[in-house]
Design a protein around this nucleic acid. Structure first.
Length: 424
RNA sequence: GGAGAGGUGGCAGAGUGGUCGAAUGCGCAGCAUUGGAAAUGCUGUGUACUCGUAAGGGUACCGAGGGUUCGAAUCCCUCCCUCUCCGCCA
């Protein structure tokens, strides 16, 4: 949600910025609704003030006296007016806020123009994406023992497509990766939390999944709860409707959760194996920061996520997402894509974003600078990291000529072995 | 799941139809007092929206949403949550 004052005072700049995002917003209707709403509100409040004053006078009169009876008749008509004006004001308010909620966050000036993902800028690469450096690579789903350790068929039987079983060393490898991610996050100053993985509608609204992206989440109808598509939702909502002390900022937290995504309509041949799942595991890092610091905090958050890929020895690139491709609530976004040598594809494993005050407004998360007025914080988050595609790249890139996969040094504390998989 | 009690300002807690945005206490801030402090006294102490260049007004908020009434923290309905007891259960 944007500040309506900003839209009023900087109308043309806001309009131009939103246009860069390729979202269609009827700003003239919004402006008209804002004016309508305020006019109605003033009328209704004036009527209400008159009612209250008349009421105070009436309270002093002896009950049942002729003066009291006369006043009562007068107040009946005032009450009718108040009711009508308040109803009008509520209607005006409702249509105004619906329009305001349809305005996306403004892209930061540092975000490049562009229509879609083809216009994203690759700003940094690390490691080699040259095929010659991976002579033994295979697409992970073509590794002979793959379906033994990652059992999609049993998953289909038990649940459905996109819900695989991780078996034996594969389950241990996932657990090792999660432990490694959480431990690195802790070293970088993020406090670990284990959040609920079902959330209510208010939480999903605050982080922006509702109302527009309702179809992406699994929904427990009977209890009105949504299964989390990312830990971002419960973790960010931790401080919903709260006021933090300025000295507490930045607050940094990390969380592991399974993530559930319906991915309706996005299934196809190019999403084989681990490339896209309905349930996957992810460690998310989240920050609540002072508004002046949020773009610096985005850089350090991105560095925190990148450090994981470097320690794992997986080649990756950083994309600066263009204005036409960043999401509704984002001001600036980087994606990290890992190179999967077997598929010869870049796979997105992290998205690091600054939401400025957009989520904080929706979620009503503020801070107080010693004794002053509460101000909205800025929120940021990033994956650090999502498991399946990291796993895919790790299996593909580290495949040896003997058919086994080499385990990165940094995972040894949790794996205790150097290779997984059967020799050819 | 059953029975009962309850949800009021930062906290505790009064308030059962009008003069209640709400007593009182605690906390917090300022001032006085003091060499300094404690104690004491006085004053102040929420959020949001809105009108106004400003000074300063107005409105809303007593868990949430509806309703009754000229008038609701107070009465009625629905929902949410907390506590106690019972039941069930990892």
């Amino acid at each position: 949600m944007l500040d309506i004052r900003l839209i009023r005072e900087d109308f043309d700049r806001v309009k131009a910025a939103v246009a860069r995002k390729k979202f269609d917003v009827d700003f003239d209707a919004l402006k008209a609704a804002d004016e309508q709403r305020r006019a109605c509100l003033t009328q209704a409040e004036n009527a209400r003030a008159a009612q209250k004053q008349a009421n105070a006078e009436m309270a002093k009169l002896p009950k049942g006296s002729p003066e009291f009876q006369a006043k009562l008749a007068e107040m009946r008509t005032i009450a009718g007016q108040v009711k009508e004006l308040e109803a009008q004001a509520k209607d005006a308010e409702d249509s105004f806020s619906a329009l305001l909620m349809s305005v996306p966050n403004l892209p930061d000036p540092s975000v490049p123009d562009g229509r879609n993902d083809a216009d994203n800028k690759s700003i940094f690469t690390w490691g080699s994406s040259d095929e010659k450096d991976y002579p033994d690579a295979l697409a992970h789903f073509d590794i002979p023992w793959f379906s033994k350790l990652l059992d999609f068929e049993r998953g289909v039987k038990v649940t459905g497509a996109g819900f695989p079983f991780y078996v034996g060393d594969m389950a241990r490898l996932v657990r090792a990766l999660l432990s490694f991610f959480l431990e690195e996050a802790r070293k970088n100053g993020y406090e670990e939390v284990m959040p609920p993985i079902l959330v209510n509608a208010a939480s999903a609204t605050a982080t922006g999944q509702l109302p527009d992206k309702e179809g992406m989440m699994y929904f427990a109808q009977e209890d009105g709860m949504y299964m989390v598509p990312t830990a971002e939702v419960p973790v960010t909502n931790f401080f919903r409707d709260e006021i933090l002390d300025e000295e507490e900022l930045p607050v940094k937290r990390c969380a592991y959760t399974p993530c559930f995504r319906r991915e309706a309509g996005s299934w196809g041949a190019h999403v084989r194996g681990l490339n896209r799942l309905h349930q996957f595991d992810k460690v998310e890092i989240v920050k609540w920061v002072h508004p002046d610091r949020s773009f610096d905090e985005l850089e350090s958050l991105r560095a925190d996520a990148e450090g994981l890929l470097q320690k794992l020895g997986l080649p990756y690139r950083v994309l600066l997402i263009c204005a036409g491709d960043i999401g509704f609530p984002h001001a600036k976004q980087y994606d990290l894509e890992v190179f999967a040598a077997g598929q010869k594809r870049w796979l997105e494993v992290s998205s690091c974003s600054n939401f400025t005050d957009f989520q904080a407004r929706r979620a009503n998360i503020r801070y107080r600078a010693n004794g002053g007025k509460p101000q909205f914080v800025h929120t940021l988050n990033g994956s650090a990291l999502a498991i399946p595609r990291v796993l895919a790249a790790l299996l593909e890139n580290n495949l040896q000529s003997d058919g086994t996969v080499k385990i990165p040094e940094c995972l040894k504390p949790w794996m205790g072995q150097d290779f997984i998989g059967a020799r050819a």
